[in-house]
Amino acid sequence: MLTPEREKKIDELLTRYPSSRSALLPALWVAQEQYGWISLELQRYLAIRLGITPEQVREVVTFYSMYNDRPVGKYHLQVCCTTPCMLMGSDDVIGYLEKKLDIGRGQTTGDGLFTVSQVECLGSCGTAPMLQVNREKYDENLTTEKVDALLDRLRTQAAAEGSNG
């Protein structure tokens, strides 16, 4: 179910730990990188791959907030709204995003490009307000102008990738 490079990555991960179950979290990341979310099918596959039970995989997927057990947009905009960010205006940022994309928190735009989520402290309190796109480097010290620029950049990027096949 995974690309050959990703299978190789999982093989490499398995050499790192005395117990294959330890490779579960990094292996889930490898899987999510490819699909954007981790379906039950994929969870079952990883269970077999790591020699653990499907239940053990599912317990972990549903515990950690960053694993998506349902599809999300191509760009998952995760806005930190914990106290330090809140003090610096994160509620305005997420409100602006919701208005601009015309979706609520946890929802995905009709074109499947964006999902907006409120998340908890991302460790970027000195550069608040901020958000994280998927698992990329943070976008920090946000203003409405920066949010606009970011959305434009992501749309352009998506269009370019789309035309490339």
Partner: peptide, 27 residues
Amino acid sequence: VYTHPGAGAYICGEETALLNSLEGKRG
């Protein structure tokens, strides 16, 4: 020396929860 990623759980900063997480379990 290896790095190991978490996946979004504040509780894994608690050292024994971190160890469970590192073992591929819930934190």
